[in-house]
Design a protein around this nucleic acid. Structure first.
Lengths: 1371, 373
DNA sequence: GAAGTATCTACAGACAATATCCCTACTGTGGAG
DNA sequence: CGCCACAGTAGGGATATAAGTAATAGATATCGC
């Protein structure tokens, strides 16, 4: 069996085994104990494990990508197999096992995958005939469902190329002749669409009518589902279909909400449909809900009217009609109206984009002060306006970037300005032109080659050409070029080290992939002018896009993306030049030449080759300081409308761009997530992540002004590096004869200088990008679509500018919605300011006092940020402090500061959040006290506490002059600060090792000048020991839990199932274990730790080969990583859940909410309320014993998992096992191997799972190794799973040995080595051998032990509700 | 040192049983064989009583003994930091010429070891400019078969290019025990696909003479006019320990006229390394990788000799490489520091990366980074 | 199947080694039956 | 028309690559005998 097949099968089996398909595992509050075991295996209960194997193999075969007529070559590479390893693969598996496969052809993914590529290629460049042939060829190897999928795609493309309708009709008829062809509702919808747009009028009506009739009669496809598909495909054709098909409104009551509204509206507004509206359905009764929907519709009419007024069309994509605003204003109360009108005295010329935008911004600003209800009518207008803008932003901003390049280029030509080519944008213009035409040329060449090639060669060397051609011809070439250049520049700008080719190719590939979706979107909505569309229509387009998943999207695998990227990149390298001027010392004159802008070479890192893209240094100059307005990559910007709510793992967020809810690493994870979402057990996660995206933000423009000033000055400021010029002049190389050491030092200096230069450069670029994005968003209201990492921690999707960024980035962002401070809010604002300054260890009142005492400085900072005393510069977080200063100053300037409307987010941070969760988990009172789970007068600070303990211990050493360390103690006694120990304390419960901690502390000590460099390392070791000592003392509870988690992870990742073992080739050895640690958060997010041993392979591209890991390979779990990652991941999954709970609660209460993992943000006035919710949610989260639940889930997931363990003859159970072995020998004729032991277990397992009570009873009575060992607790064998105790004695033995050999050498000096000496040495050696060797155990046997976890640490008596009263829990 | 060491098989039994495992090195265990090979190659002709022998990683001293017996040098300094080796030598060997024999527990890996040594009386030879004569006042011997040996071999050759370390004294010969693997690298001539960067670099500044080789290497190596003693596989058991792969003895003789100036050596080194990253791709392609636009100045250099479409770096002689390099250096559009980018290849040292400088500028500062700031 | 040796060194966001040689097995072609 | 032989090549697997190892040390995993 090919490797790949086995891999897939293993995943499948594992998934089945883990109860993947059932709600029970992925439910919100997993109670694995309640899992009905019979549900875990959806296939018929196998009589033996062999059945499972057979069934799954068949299924894989079914879905598998066989294409026997073209090849018999056995493919071992599995990367492409996996293309189908998506949800449909699993849903396939999920089906009833009665499904009979139609083909059992050989499993060869790659060839079919290649065909898919060819098909895609043919379809996309219009080679319909060949596409047809391929589709036909592939028919035999596809399942019916799959065929439908591709058939539909084929038809879609036919329609898109406006092919003659009769061809479509014939194609369909032909397909119907195939007895297994089952048209789906989409197929019918496509036909109807085709008919309504392509068929001649005469035929059109008749075709639709008959098709609808046939379908109605057949009844296996409901009419409404056809209309639904049509709605997503081509809403415009619905009226015609309804009329011609005489479909009654009543037939469509089952439509989902959105299409239904659309259709209902048609019935109401289109006269030709009115009759159908009242007609009684022949199929279903009238839906009583109808009335309600009509009422709802009324509300929508504002938008609708607006659309009508827009039909005249405006010059630009962004426009705003005064009439509609007037209409909206009419809906406002008179006072609000007056207010708005006052600010906006007149409405700009509607053809003047700037004026329109200006009007919008003013209106927006005004509306922000309105109550939500009052704002609603305006919001309708805004929504429409913004949705159009957002779609334009997502789909056409590339074009506009290119246009601006052109404009700037022509402008400079006209002006005749000398440095035409000295501006980045003009440079980009010429680059783009060159690259575009070159790509086209290459594609044409490929097209020709493919056209002339015979069908026999399709599969071979033209494969990658097909791939490139197919995918790239689906995207406008200029867009490919633009996005490539932008992405490349971004990478060059942001890279602080060498730009590795694989990074570049991946990034470009990803960017082009994203553009592919845009192109697909644009293609499906040809000439659709968004200006003429209603809000609802826009939404429907968006939904349609997300709804119609592209079956060819699966071609975009990582290797494909890299190849595409390399194709374009190689062209870029060929044609892109940059003008360089140099002084030629030979001719004594300056010459300017156009030099390649990029080259490709290699560097070595630890002897390994790394491909790099070498930008010409000249380019760097353009990037750091240039005007980046049109050079920022417009993909993934903040959104102008609320992100789509998450409804599945891939639907949500951006309107057109695809994105994932959970950033998964492995397919395994994806499958779990998809299943959980389908089962509805992740609803809370979907909800909360959607909520995070709904928070409206805007740019803090006064602060932006300040930063812009700093930027423009170009001087070094805080951590902003100064404006850069050329590359630094490196020191001269040491002269001839300089020692190797000197040379090395010199090289190091050079390296550091270059490194610093590149780093400064990238920081400048980073800031440049951020400011450019911020600038374009001034006055706007925008949103951050969020997604989560695999543990559930939330991140905003837009890179660069987001609230997770650094101090400066954060300071640029404020809530869009202002809220009146109130007295409490004012107080929190002050506290916030103190926190940002660094005074977060004081009591709240003291922090307020601190601010009050520094009011003068604060006001000075706010009013005179760059020329005053600049108090804010000395803060921990200077830019945010400045923001807070400005906010506070503005408030204080009001007659009544409490009435000030503030937009500043106020942060509430957990004090060592990880330890807080640990303390709550363990019910650890002392721990809880340390991290403010219990009320206290002033905040507790563990870091200070640890620092104090360490300092005390060091002082002790100093006093006692403890041997060896007193010197170090003297050095360190006064240098132990909170900062030194902080990171180590935090990470210690996450399992940092001594070495890691030492590095951390060493890093901290670097900042302390009083420690001489040569002693630093020793100091670090010394301090680390002390810190570890203190931590052990202080966080006993946390460490207990941590240890348990690590042990559990080891058990899971070492465990194997009976199948694993029976599959294994080696009958004696334990098979590789493939179980990852997997659990479910209280919000139902299934977490699968993705750490496995990597298998990577080289992917050949035009530029170089790229080393890619194959995400679809199922490799054995990396037990070490799994174990060390479980504690942090588990805790983080809890803090993520806590955040999500709080987000939902805050949302319910109408609070704005944002978070950075353990820092929760809201308006000043709402901090109190949010604080209550934070605490309440925390208590709710920890009320149940989460560790116990985790334990239960682990047990359930590993119910029939085993670990092979060694039983020595002295073991009490040894005799029993030996007896069983003898019994087995009689049955199988030899002493049992490990596999035989497992076979026995498998037998028992089958019996126990049987539906027959008698068999189950038999199973319970069966004697196997695991039943004999059932009393064996984890602790007794932990040595075999965790570290081995027999090994722990070894270092000592080794030391002893060393000493002995020294002794051996200390004999009398001899001139020659005599026989005596040899004997002497001999004896010594023998002695060592005797002592050092572990007693060899003969006759021990290895048998499966059914996994069992150690006892979970006992939970303490902490009264969690105390948290509710602890004001410093989050502060 | 004039005392005979025991036959190795006797010693090895002892060592094996006492779990001393210094066998990461391959030892040549037959002094007579070494003497024979050295005499045949004539590498040590002219060396003798005036020579200071620096002997790095002598292991159990069989090569050392051979050289010692042949030269009776003024000083023979054995440097080995490993106690397993050092102790054994210390115990087993009692020198009959204590003024010459000098065993030290120093680490020859460290450059400073030699710097310190040369501060001692009588340890520092007279400087001799690179001329027609070798500086026979010094001979460097090393067993480079251990871990890190490859690195040292490469670096010692580099030192010739820089004319630093022992080459500050002039043309100092070196005698190395190397693994067959390294031998293959070195004895690969232009045109063979086996031609390596190391070989190209080495022949730029030195002649490598095979002294003692193993028979199986014959098919992979081109010894030029060298005529080494060959050890057949059957003899491995007597000649080497461990016997598995055997070892090769070479003499490295710095050239009188180097093809590249010491001041250009670093740049040349990077140049060659860069070209040999794709050592079998035609020049027309791989020359572009040197830096943007680099093909242009280099195209005229060899166009009368070779076809750029088909010639590969492996086909070039050291002399051709040096000329290419010269042209590259003289190219006015050579990016100022682009070769230095190779410096950034190990990122452990990059202290200015964004990650290590969390703070106000730079990427997202999440909880972890805030803690460290 | 036990012993020495290489490989790590808290987690996440963000990841990432390649060129070349050699050999095998497959594909395609052409020729003879 | 099908078969067979042979040549050519795609692609999988193995291997080398660079070159200070600046300090340390303990656990674990893989690997060679």
């Amino acid at each position: 069996m090919p490797k790949s097949t086995r891999a897939l099968k293993i995943v499948a089996l594992r998934a089945i085994h883990n109860g993947l398909y059932r709600k029970s595992i992925a439910q919100a509050h997993p109670d694995p104990a309640s899992i009905d075991h019979s549900l875990k295996i959806p296939l018929t209960t196998p009589r033996s494990t062999e059945d499972v194997v057979v069934i799954s193999r068949d299924r894989l075969g079914d879905f598998g990508l066989a294409f026997p007529s073209l090849t018999t070559r056995q493919r071992k590479r599995s990367m492409n197999v996996s293309q189908n390893f998506d949800s449909s693969f699993f849903s396939q598996l999920q089906r009833e096992s009665s499904h009979v496969s139609t083909s059992r052809t050989s499993f060869d993914a790659n060839d079919r995958f290649k065909l898919l590529n060819v098909l895609s290629s043919c379809l996309s460049h219009g080679n319909i005939d060949r596409a047809k042939v391929i589709l036909k060829n592939m028919r035999s190897s596809m399942t019916d469902d799959e065929y439908s999928l591709f058939f539909n795609e084929y038809i879609t493309r036919l329609i898109e190329v406006n092919i003659n309708f009769t061809i479509i009709e014939d194609t369909f008829k032909e397909a119907l002749d195939h007895k297994n062809f089952i048209p789906t509702s989409k197929t019918i919808a496509l036909l109807l669409w085709a008919a309504s747009t392509l068929a001649p009028d005469l035929k059109k009506h008749e075709f639709i009518r008959s098709q609808i009739q046939i379908t109605s009669l057949a009844r296996d496809i409901p009419l409404y589902s056809i209309i639904e598909e049509l709605f997503y495909l081509s809403p415009d054709s619905i009226p015609y279909v309804l009329r011609s098909g005489e479909i009654a409104q009543a037939d469509l009551t089952d439509l989902p909400e959105e299409p239904k509204q659309y259709v209902d509206n048609l019935y109401r507004t289109l006269p030709t449909l009115v009759s159908l509206c009242s007609n009684k359905s022949q199929m279903r009764p009238l839906d009583p809900k109808q009335e309600i929907i009509e009422q709802l519709d009324d509300v929508e009419s504002v938008g609708y009217k607006y659309v009508k007024s827009m039909l005249g069309g405006l010059a630009d994509g962004v426009s705003f009609a005064p009439q509609e605003i007037q209409d909206a204003l009419h809906k406002l109360s008179s006072s609000d109206r007056a207010q708005v009108s006052k600010t906006i005295p007149f409405f700009g010329d509607e053809h003047d984009t700037d004026a329109v935008l200006d009007t919008y911004w003013k209106l927006l600003e005004m509306s922000s002060n309105l109550e939500p209800e009052a704002r609603a009518p305006l919001e309708n207008v805004f929504d429409l306006f913004n949705r159009r803008r957002e779609i334009a932003l997502e789909t056409t901003s590339l074009n506009s970037a290119a246009e601006r390049w052109k404009e700037e280029y022509s402008a400079s030509i006209e002006r005749g300005s000398l440095p035409v080519m000295k501006k980045l944008n003009t440079l980009l213009y010429s680059w783009n032109k060159a690259v575009t035409s070159r790509i086209e040329k290459e594609l044409d060449k490929m097209r020709d080659e493919l056209a002339t090639s015979t069908s026999r060669t399709i599969m071979n060397n033209s494969e990658s050409r097909h791939e490139v051609l197919g995918l790239l011809s689906a995207i406008p070439t200029d867009q490919v070029s633009v996005i490539t250049l932008l992405e490349l520049l971004r990478l060059v700008a942001m890279g602080s080290e060498e730009l590795s080719t694989s990074k570049v190719l991946n990034a470009i590939g990803d960017a082009i992939h994203l553009e592919y979706h845009v192109a697909r979107y644009t293609k499906r909505n040809p000439n659709r002018d968004t200006r003429s569309l209603s809000n609802r229509q826009l939404l429907s387009i968006v939904n349609k896009n997300k709804h119609n998943a592209d079956p060819f999207d699966k071609i975009w695998t990582s290797d494909t993306k890299v190849r595409i990227g390399a194709f374009v990149m190689s062209i870029v390298m060929d044609v892109v030049k940059v003008p360089v001027t140099r002084y030629d010392s030979v001719t004594n004159e300056s010459i300017t030449k156009k030099i390649d802008a990029f080259s490709h070479s290699y560097v070595y890192r630890n002897g390994k080759k790394i491909g790099i893209i070498n930008p010409h240094p000249e380019i760097l100059k353009y990037l750091a300081e240039g005007d980046m307005k049109q050079s920022a990559n417009p993909q993934l910007l903040p959104m102008l409308v609320k992100p789509l709510p998450w409804t599945s793992n891939v639907t949500g967020g951006y309107l057109t761009a695809p994105n994932e809810l959970v950033r998964t690493v492995s397919i395994e994870q994806k499958v779990y997530i998809q299943t959980a979402i389908e089962n509805g057990t992740m609803d809370k996660v979907l909800e909360s992540v959607s909520i995070l995206g709904e928070t409206p933000w805007t740019i803090n423009s006064p602060l932006f002004e300040v930063i812009a000033q700093i930027w423009n000055k170009g001087e070094e400021f805080l951590d902003i590096p100064a404006k850069l010029s050329d590359e630094p002049d490196l020191p001269k190389s040491p002269g001839e004869g300089a020692s190797p050491q000197e040379r090395r030092d010199w090289a190091r200096t050079c390296r550091l200088m270059m490194s610093k230069y590149r780093s400064d450069h990238s920081q400048r670029c980073d800031l440049n990008y951020k400011l450019e994005i911020a600038r374009s968003l001034i006055g706007e209201r925008f949103f951050f679509p969020h997604n989560v990492d695999f543990r559930g921690r939330a991140y905003p999707i837009p890179p660069l500018l987001n609230h997770l960024g650094n101090d400066l980035t954060r300071s640029l962002l404020v809530f869009w919605q202002p809220k009146t401070l109130g007295a409490e809010g004012l107080r929190w604002l002050k506290i916030h300011l103190a926190n940002l300054f660094g005074k977060d260890k004081m009591s709240l009142d003291d922090r307020v006092r601190f601010v009050d005492e520094h009011l003068a400085e604060i006001v000075d900072s706010a009013t005179n940020p760059l020329n005053g005393k600049m108090w804010w510069k000395y803060a921990d977080k200077p830019f945010q402090t400045l923001g807070a200063c400005m906010e506070l100053e503005k408030a204080l300037r009001c007659p009544d500061p409490t009435l000030f409307k503030s937009r500043l987010p106020i942060h509430q941070d957990g004090t060592c959040n990880g330890l807080q969760h640990y303390a709550a988990l363990g019910g650890d009172i002392e721990g809880a006290n340390q991290v403010n789970l219990l009320p206290a007068e002033i905040p507790r600070d563990v870091y200070t506490k640890v620092a104090d303990m360490v300092r005390a211990s060091i002082r002790e050493d100093l006093e006692h002059k403890t041997a060896g360390v007193s010197e170090l103690a003297a050095l360190m006694a006064d240098n132990i600060t909170r900062k030194v120990v902080k990171q180590t304390v935090m990470t210690s419960v996450y399992g940092v090792t001594f070495v890691g901690a030492r590095e951390q502390i060493n890093g901290q000590l670097k900042e302390i000048d009083s420690i001489p460099e040569e002693k630093r390392y020793l100091c670090a070791i010394y301090v680390t020991k002390k810190v570890f000592g203190a931590i052990r003392e202080l966080f006993y509870g946390a460490h207990e839990i941590q240890d348990w988690l690590v042990a559990a992870a080891r058990i899971i990742t070492k465990s194997v199932t009976t199948e694993d073992c029976l599959e294994a080739v080696d009958t004696r050895r334990a098979p590789k274990s493939v179980s990852s640690v997997t659990w479910t958060t209280p919000f139902g997010l299934p977490i699968v730790q993705p750490y496995r041993k990597m298998t990577k392979e080289q992917v050949v591209t035009r530029l170089q080969t790229v080393y890619l890991s194959d995400p679809y390979q199922l490799n054995s779990a990396d037990s070490r990583k799994q174990a060390s990652a479980l504690p942090p991941n588990f805790i983080h999954s809890l803090d993520a859940t806590h955040m999500m709970m709080t987000a939902i609660e805050c949302h319910k209460a109408g609070l704005s909410f944002a978070s950075v993992h353990d820092s929760y943000w809201t308006h000043a006035c709402d901090v109190g309320e949010m604080n209550d919710k934070i605490r309440a949610c925390f208590v709710r989260l920890h009320t149940s014993d989460l560790v116990a639940k985790l334990h239960k889930e682990f047990m359930k997931r590993t119910e029939f998992h085993y670990i092979p363990i060694n039983i020595v003859p002295s073991h009490p159970k040894y005799a029993q096992l030996k007896q069983l072995a003898k019994d087995t020998k009689e049955r199988i004729g030899r002493m049992p191997h490990l596999r035989d032991w497992f076979a026995l277990e498998a037998e028992r397992e089958v019996l126990l799972k049987s539906s027959d009570e008698a068999e189950r009873e038999e199973g319970r009575n069966m004697v196997t190794a695991s039943t004999i060992l059932s009393d064996l607790e984890f602790d007794e064998i932990s040595g075999q799973i965790m570290k081995s105790p027999s090994r722990s004695g070894k270092p000592a033995a080794r030391k002893h040995r060393k000493k002995s050999s020294e002794n051996a050498g200390e004999g009398p000096e001899v001139a020659l080595v005599s026989d005596e000496d040899i004997e002497l040495l001999d004896e010594a050696a023998a002695a060592i051998e005797e002592e050092g060797a572990a007693p060899k155990v003969k006759g021990s046997i290895t048998v499966p032990w059914q996994v069992k976890f150690p006892e979970i640490p006992k939970r303490g008596d902490l009264d969690l509700t105390q948290v509710l009263k602890s004001q410093y829990f989050f502060s | 040192m004039s005392a005979r060491l025991p036959r190795f098989n006797e010693l090895s039994n002892v060592l094996k049983r006492s779990h001393i495992s210094a066998y990461t090195r391959i030892n040549i265990t037959d002094s007579d064989l070494v003497v024979r090979a050295l005499e045949r190659s004539g590498s040590l002709n002219g060396y003798g009583r005036d020579t200071i022998v620096l002997d790095a990683y002598p292991s159990y001293g069989y090569v050392s003994q051979a050289v010692h017996d042949m030269l009776r040098p003024r000083k023979h300094v054995l440097l080995d930091i490993y106690p397993q080796v050092y102790k054994v030598l210390q115990e087993m060997v009692v020198p009959q010429d204590p003024t010459s024999y000098d065993l030290r527990p120093l680490d020859p890996y460290k450059w400073s070891t030699f710097d310190h040594l040369w501060t001692e009386e009588g340890m520092k030879p007279q400087k001799m400019p690179f001329g027609p004569e070798f500086n026979k006042e010094m001979l460097f011997i090393a067993n480079l078969t251990g871990s890190g040996g490859t690195q040292l071999l490469s670096q010692y050759i580099n030192c010739i290019g820089y004319r630093n370390w022992i080459f500050q004294f002039g043309r100092v010969k070196m005698l190395f025990a190397i693994t067959p693997r390294e031998a293959k690298l070195l004895f690969s001539t232009p045109g063979s696909t086996r031609r390596t960067r190391l070989s190209a670099i080495a022949y730029t500044v030195a002649d490598i003479k095979p002294v003692l080789v193993t028979e199986p290497l014959r098919k992979d190596c081109d010894y030029g006019d060298g005529d080494p003693v060959e050890v057949s596989e059957e003899e491995f058991g007597d000649a080497f320990y461990p016997k598995k792969s055997g070892a090769v003895l070479i003499a490295v003789e710095p050239k009188e006229n180097m093809l590249v100036e010491a001041s250009d050596w670093y740049s040349y080194h990077l140049f060659v390394r860069n070209l040999f990253a794709t050592r079998a791709t035609p020049l027309i392609k791989c020359l572009r990788g040197l830096s943007p636009g680099a093909l242009e100045p280099l195209y005229p250099v060899l166009k009368d000799e070779v076809d750029y479409e088909t010639t590969r770096p492996v086909d070039l002689t050291a002399e051709q490489l040096a000329r290419l390099h010269r042209a590259y250096e003289d190219w006015p559009f050579k990016p100022k520091n682009v070769m230095w980018s190779a410096f950034m290849e190990d990122f452990a040292e990059a202290e200015h990366t964004l990650v290590s400088q969390p703070g106000i500028i730079g990427p997202a500062a999440d909880d972890t980074e805030r803690s460290s700031s």
